[in-house]
Amino acid sequence: MAYELKQVSVSLAGREVLRDISCTLQEGKWISIIGPTGAGKSTFAKVIKGLIPAYKGEYTLHRQPLPGDSKGRMKAVREIGYVFQYPEQQIFETTVYKELTFGPKMLGHSRGRIEEALEPVLRQVGLPAEILSASPLVLSGGQKRRVAIASVLITDPKLLILDEPTAGLDPLSRQALLQMLREWQQANHRTVLFISHQMEDVAEYSDEVMVFHEGQLLGHSDPGTLFMKNTEILRRAGLPLPEPVQLLRLVEELSGRTIEVDSCRERDIFDKVRLVWEARGLHHDE
């Protein structure tokens, strides 16, 4: 079960925004998408979601080719959830209840199933049940964002696309949101496509990373390979290394030896660096 693109190109207003993309998105993975502004990240996500009507190439959904017509694309639309950038700006219903039930209704879920899904999804995003009758207009920015995300999670998507979901949030809200989404993804064995500018978040959460640059897919690998072994791709896309990896490089330079770490998560790198640092310090004491 997977989502597969073969040589997909997209032109918008006479400009080629995606060029010859071939890739497979495996189920159950957190896949991050990085690249400079205008690299084609959002367009790629929209193709996967079936929101872009005309593209060249082939899109296979669970080994079945997806017809390019609107009916075919609706199939992709149905099982994929999409949280847009600044999702709180796209709330369009008059109460939280209506906003949350809009998606499942459109998918034809039964009334009973929708009602049952409400409470768990509110709990998931950390909102009280009383909020259901409130108008979205009176909610705080953070609450609106959680409502917007809940309104997508409630459709129980197999693949969830997140377009910079943490933009504009304070650091702890950001961590809490990503943690929550990661837990949801792992507990339900779902796939996540995570568009981000924050290399540190990408290094922390991803199973796989895709690098886009000027409409092309420059690389697709696990974060360890991308950030620590094959860093040429990152350089070509004009993207910085995550800070922990930069630290690792600096310590290697200062100590004059290579340090083996198999994870690019901050905590693991800090542990290694501390060992090197302490070894140096002890040596110095003697």
């Binding site: 809200s173 630290l247 501390r274």
Partner: peptide, 17 residues
């Protein structure tokens, strides 16, 4: 006590004691 995290430099400082 606040919804703010430590900057990287501070986290690093702590990690190295």
């Amino acid at each position: 006590d606040h919804p703010l995290d430590q900057p990287f430099a501070v986290r690093l400082q702590h990690a190295l004691g």
